[in-house]
Design a protein around this nucleic acid. Structure first.
Lengths: 226, 226
DNA sequence: GACAACATACCAACTGGTCGGTATGTTTCC
DNA sequence: GGAAACATACCGACCAGTTGGTATGTTGTC
């Protein structure tokens, strides 16, 4: 799933990459503190010696995983189908709809690694907290140019900054993940994503989404990213 | 700070209540798994024997803390100043503004215990997950009557349910807490709360909030709120 | 191109310490 | 005096991290 190798790298991933992959998977399920080094080694098919050869501490693996997570997200969303839209507002709304559509399947598969880890680290592991901030902000800020361009193109004023709206989308999604975890289901998360989309459309003076029909912007339904 | 005793109870709190108070405090700072039973006992001024006399397991203390947290929240917000408003919409908006204003001071003092714990428990401790859901939902649902009444009074239609809007407010706040934890500051959290308030005002056809007083848009830095 | 010198990747076994939880007292209160 | 409320001492399991090593490159030198 998460591919940290530089694209067409042929040789199989080494212990370091496998450990990062294991961290992304297991930490999202159980949290950072509840995941032991032994379990990460087992999941990665690696010994403990290899672990501490590549990472000075468990925290350092968390930091590397947060970094990989950011690259993964920006790769995924930077090449998603909605990016073909010419109007930056269509791209921004396409992003939000795509994120909503991702809220299907098992909960551990759509939640955010950085959002999970930061809750456990913000007071106790400053380096990991900072890596999580960098991961979240580094993804959020990729939205800002489209938001800015959309405001300019559609002549939207409003007493809000594009940065704050980009971060707000991430906050709503993070909150949606918490609702999903609390219920072990995704309905509440989808509902809150719908509210977010409704909000953004109102900010840009668009009518509400049509429940299902092919709307003015076209649903990315069936959009299957490779 | 958090007072789990029933108001005018004269005698000092026993070990059970002190442990719940300690859990509310320490778990919000460090998370559930990173908080040891010994540390909870130390914080509560209680021995380990007393701990396991009152709670069969550490998880059971977490469950009791989530329950106490819900009661605490509903007590706090059920008697807040904005509740005197006659218009249910004023009460709902007053709640949101109150929550935004609470986003001052140290991060561990305004975050949500249930939101913190559910991330660490949803896949591994089903009973605690359920207690967290009950805590979050139990608070969110107290907003529904006012939202319903506000819709009726102001003739608001919209393709959304009052339940989903109540949950959306909680999701945004939970997401705001994550941004605050990631930055170890509350500016981003306040900004996202502003977006939430703007959204609700738009849903109810109200003009945007006035920024504050003097100044063009006036950054809330150095917040003058008492 | 052969060989020493060094670097990287990985491994199995182990360590000191901490964990949640228990067994067995002692005190307090009615 | 009996039960509930606490305290003390302790346990086995597990934890992150260390140790001392091997196998496999890579690089420099003649």
């Amino acid at each position: 799933m998460i591919d940290t190798t530089p694209a067409a790298s042929a040789k199989p991933p080494g212990a370091r990459d496998r450990l990062i992959g294991a961290a992304v998977k297991v930490v999202r399920e159980k949290g950072f503190n509840a995941t032991s080094v032994d379990e990460l080694c087992r999941e990665a098919g690696v010994t403990k010696g290899a672990f501490f050869h590549h990472f000075p501490s468990k925290t350092d693996l968390g930091i590397a995983a947060a970094e990989a997570w950011k690259l993964h997200a920006n790769e995924l969303f930077g090449h998603a189908p909605y990016m073909v839209h010419e109007d930056p507002l269509d791209r921004f709304l396409g992003y939000l709809e795509f994120r909503r559509d991702l809220l299907d399947g098992p909960v551990p598969e759509f939640t955010c690694l950085a959002g999970t880890m930061v809750q456990e680290s913000y007071e106790t592991l400053p380096a990991l907290r900072e890596a999580c901030q960098d991961s979240i902000w580094g993804h959020a800020l990729t939205l800002v140019p489209d938001i800015e361009a959309a405001r300019a193109r559609h002549g939207i004023e409003g007493a809000w900054t594009s940065d704050s709206l980009a971060l707000h989308t991430q906050a709503v999604l993070q909150g949606a993940f918490i609702l999903a975890k609390a219920t072990n289901g995704s309905q509440a998360a989808r509902d809150t994503a719908d509210h977010l989309i409704r909000y953004v459309r109102m900010l840009f003076n668009l009518p509400p989404e049509k429940p299902d029909l092919s709307g003015p912007i076209g649903q990315p339904e069936g959009g299957n990213h490779g």
